[in-house]
Amino acid sequence: MAAIEPIDIVELGVADAPAGLVLSTEAGWNQNEADWRFFLSHGIVFGVRDGDRLVASAALLPYWAGNAWISMVLVTPDFRRRGIATKLVDACLDVAKRRGLTAWLDATPAGATVYGPLGFEPTLQLRRLRLEKPQGANATRPLSAGNLDALATRDSRAMGFDRSTLLSAFVARPGSRIVSDERAMALIRDGRAARHIGPLLADRADQALGLVEAIVGSESGPWLIDAVHAQDAFLEGLVRAGWNIERPFQRMRFGAATALPAQLPFAVAGPEFG
């Protein structure tokens, strides 16, 4: 197909989850089908098709207090550089504007150059780190089961708005668990290719690092974590422990901030969820 003129944008449904997974897997992302089903059932997901094939997507996931997350902006390689991603993000922004929502996203460096001219402003930065873990790891210290209500409360303070619906959906999945260790708490869940740690909340960097150490010692990897760059002691501790930085993300906001976080997390739920 030589060109798409005009681009026919459609709204996707839950039945499109397998097709969305093909797109994110092709890009090497860690989302699984359960992630796609959450976006498609709780958010607004736009796409572009070439016949029966889904070739592009973008999602808007509304949260509480007038906030929403834009993510899953994907275009299959042979349809790139045609303005499709920009048009899909514009479709998400149109919905956000009509609903009076402040839109957020976590952009790759290349994406940030696209979103800046659209009106997105940079906020904090993230670093995605990966740890390969051999089978048969032994736990360094016992982990206590965490409480969903307590996690949702701390997450709300860290984000500035409530995400209990998202966290509840994560916890309900097979393989997910909330763990705590002294003053630190985190959610662990399955991804397509690696286990993911986040959000991770703690009072101090040493508490956050101790919890990560206990987590990776309690089961085999590989692991992914999206650390807040401003938590430099935590980030440096992860690198010393053998985690490798894979890529940066720039958090960006379109619209006025509705609330300020009371305390930054040490790691987030993921660039697709905030």
Rank of each mutant, 00 (worst) to 15 (best):
A262L: 14
I215M: 10
A2W: 14
A205R: 03
F266N: 01
M185D: 13
F120R: 06
M185A: 12
G111C: 10
R253E: 05
K87F: 13
T165M: 05
D52R: 08
A257C: 08
P261R: 08
G217L: 13
P18H: 10
M159R: 06
I188A: 00
S156H: 02
L209M: 08
L209A: 04
I4E: 12
V22E: 14
L238D: 09
F38K: 01
W64P: 03
F273G: 01
F170I: 00
W104S: 00
A59L: 05
A110S: 05
A241R: 15
W36V: 04
R177W: 06
L187V: 00
R37S: 12
A184C: 07
V45G: 06
I4V: 15
R80I: 15
A193C: 10
R49I: 15
P122T: 09
A230S: 07
G217P: 11
L211A: 08
V48S: 01
I245N: 08
L224A: 14
L209F: 09
L235M: 11
R240N: 14
W223M: 11
S156M: 02
P62Y: 03
L88P: 05
D8V: 09
S176I: 02
V45P: 01
F120C: 07
K87Q: 13
A169D: 04
A110T: 03
I9Y: 03
V75Q: 03
R82K: 13
T153C: 10
W104E: 02
L93K: 02
A17P: 14
K133V: 12
W29A: 04
A227C: 10
A145Q: 08
A56H: 09
T102Q: 06
F254P: 04
V73G: 03
A19L: 13
A241I: 01
I178K: 03
A3D: 10
F273A: 00
H229M: 15
F273H: 07
A208M: 07
R204T: 05
P62M: 05
L101V: 00
A158S: 01
L124E: 11
I7D: 07
L40H: 06
V10E: 04
G210A: 07
A208L: 02
F170L: 01
H196Y: 09
V179T: 00
L74S: 10
S218D: 08
A194K: 14
G160L: 02
A110K: 08
F79Q: 15
P174Q: 01
V114N: 09
I7G: 06
Q125Y: 10
S41A: 14
R183W: 14
A208Q: 00
K97A: 11
S71A: 06
R253M: 11
W104I: 04
D206K: 06
I44W: 15
P271N: 04
E213Y: 05
P222F: 09
A103Y: 04
G255V: 13
Q231N: 02
P199Q: 03
N147C: 07
A193N: 15
S220K: 13
C92G: 03
V216A: 04
R99A: 07
V10L: 11
F38T: 06
S41F: 12
G136T: 12
A137I: 07
V55N: 14
L167R: 00
T123E: 15
N30R: 09
E33V: 00
N147Y: 06
T113C: 12
G28R: 13
I4Q: 12
R204S: 02
N67W: 01
I197F: 05
F234C: 13
P142V: 05
V212Q: 08
H196A: 10
L61H: 04
H229I: 15
L151P: 01
D206V: 05
